[in-house]
Design a protein around this nucleic acid. Structure first.
Lengths: 289, 289
DNA sequence: GCTTGACTCTTCCCCTTGGGGAGGCCGCAC
DNA sequence: GTGCGGCCTCCCCAAGGGGAAGAGTCAAGC
């Protein structure tokens, strides 16, 4: 039970004295003993292991609150959580790499858009929808709910993109602004009525024929994560659509490409159900007249 | 010359009103016109492009000061700088990935060390050295100077690790603590005197025979970058050495593995000269009795 | 012209993870 | 006694905003 002063502990753990005092205050790394009279902190050498772990977790940019919780729980569980966190960091990093690429290329004049914009004709179609006001947090949950609902009861297969479900962002979705957001699944018109009666939770509507401008996203990039955080790819795609509209002198208003990106649609085309780890094909589209 | 209010500009640029006011204050993105009477900011729609760029650069975590400078200089030059910055980010990310791997594996009980520790016998040898007190900034420069010096005049080839130059950190090297640091190059003992006279800038010394414990670093990981920032790999290697010493009940003192990692040596073995982009084989070693 | 509601202004305090320094207490060596 | 090194607490600072308060402004409708 060898005790060391804060300075000694600092050298051995490679944490600054300042940081150690902060960790004490926040309950992340509490000295084994604090002398009442002097307030001197004394650490047990056995605490070094924990201190090194804290140092490493800080290098991974985990906030101190998270570190405190991790230290409190089972190591195996903690490992799983760190792994999950790291996956998120990796995804963000990949998206940022793409963004950096784009910025460098554009500034150096090599390329002005990252994603190709294409257009497509959408015929009139019948949709089973749920439209709800949800904020950033609830948006992801709504999607899961919708997918689960569709899987519950049999649905006629519609092949390819024609049958792919999609979402429409009718309003801004952020932490303090709650949509609305609509999830839609195309169904064969002739069976629409019958299916609608099977899905009392969903509403049936007919979407008129129109055209869409769209960009396909790299298939490992979901436009929004479970936390609701919009990935930089969203920005790249939006950038590409704006540039495309500018080039063609299309009025953004008639393109439904409002500054706030309202009315934008995201199509998900997955052979397998969407999970946290498997991302489907995605594209971002805006209808235009 | 269409002018828009800050709210409108905020929506179009996807920058918060708060951020826009901050950028104005810091001179990063100054509104085209500020009405004297009301203080209202009015932006030119042509500024949107710049605003979007700022938004993207912020996503890449560039500080506002850097962004201001980038906007001021030539786009092509800016692109080069961003690319350089991104390379640094990538290197850091790679190192952190490894660290995350290690932490997860250790916590889940799969593996307790990341790097293998080995030992080697070092015979008595003659060294041409330069030892100087340098802080974090100057350390890298000293290395370059040393390498340049050695390349200037002919030196007998010594094959393999026996001839590899290395550095010894005799004292803590950080922003406010300046070593000393010693750079050494082994030379054949029989030619030592003759060579030393050719290199008046270097001092000749004889290192006694000893043993070293060492870990090899993955060859894309320099232990310290040009900025002097120590990569997380350093931590992993040090961790491995400590664990190894603990396992063998070797007193860290006799291992010269002091808490502060003093006396630690880094060996560089390169067929090609070390540049900013090509990393040589590296290992981190500590002598022991 | 007036009202009203939506914007916008400045100013102040808050967050996080520490770094830096001032001023004071303690023990130890000379 | 005195100097020095370590340690304590307390306060200010950074970036990049978020949020609230209180007041002023703009534009549309009546």
């Amino acid at each position: 039970m060898e005790e060391v002063s804060i300075g000694e502990f600092s050298r051995r753990s490679r944490l600054s004295v300042k940081a150690l005092r902060l960790y004490d205050e926040l309950g992340v790394l509490v000295p084994a003993r604090v002398e009442e009279a002097s307030g001197y902190r004394y650490y047990n050498v056995a605490q070094l292991e924990g201190a090194r772990l804290v140092a490493m977790l800080r290098q991974l940019d985990l906030p101190l609150d998270a570190i405190r919780e991790l230290l409190a729980c089972d190591p195996v569980d903690a490992a799983a959580r760190i792994a999950a966190h790291w996956r998120q960091v990796e995804a963000l990093h990949d998206a940022r790499r793409e963004l950096a690429d784009y910025v460098v290329n554009r500034l150096s004049g090599k390329r002005s858009v990252m994603y190709e914009v294409a257009t497509r004709e959408i015929p009139e179609r019948s949709l089973l929808c749920v439209k709800r006001n949800v904020d950033e947090q609830a948006a992801w949950a709504l999607g899961k709910e919708f997918i689960a609902l569709l899987r519950e009861r049999p649905l006629p297969k519609m092949e390819g993109r024609a049958g792919a479900m999609f979402t429409i962002y009718w309003g801004e979705v952020s932490a303090d602004s709650d949509g609305p957001v609509e999830w839609c699944k195309p169904v064969p018109p002739e069976k629409a009525e019958a299916l609608a009666s099977q899905y009392p939770e969903l509403s049936l509507r007919t979407e008129p024929a129109h055209r869409e401008a769209y960009v396909a996203l790299p298939n490992d990039a979901l436009p929004a994560g479970p936390g609701g955080n919009r990935s930089p790819q969203w920005q790249l795609a939006s950038e590409a659509l704006h540039a495309w509209a500018d080039e063609r002198w299309i009025d953004p208003e008639s393109l439904a490409l409002k500054p706030e990106d309202l009315g934008v649609r995201i199509t998900y085309l997955a052979s397998e159900p969407v999970t946290e780890t498997s991302a489907p094909y995605c594209d971002i589209a805006v209808p235009f007249a």
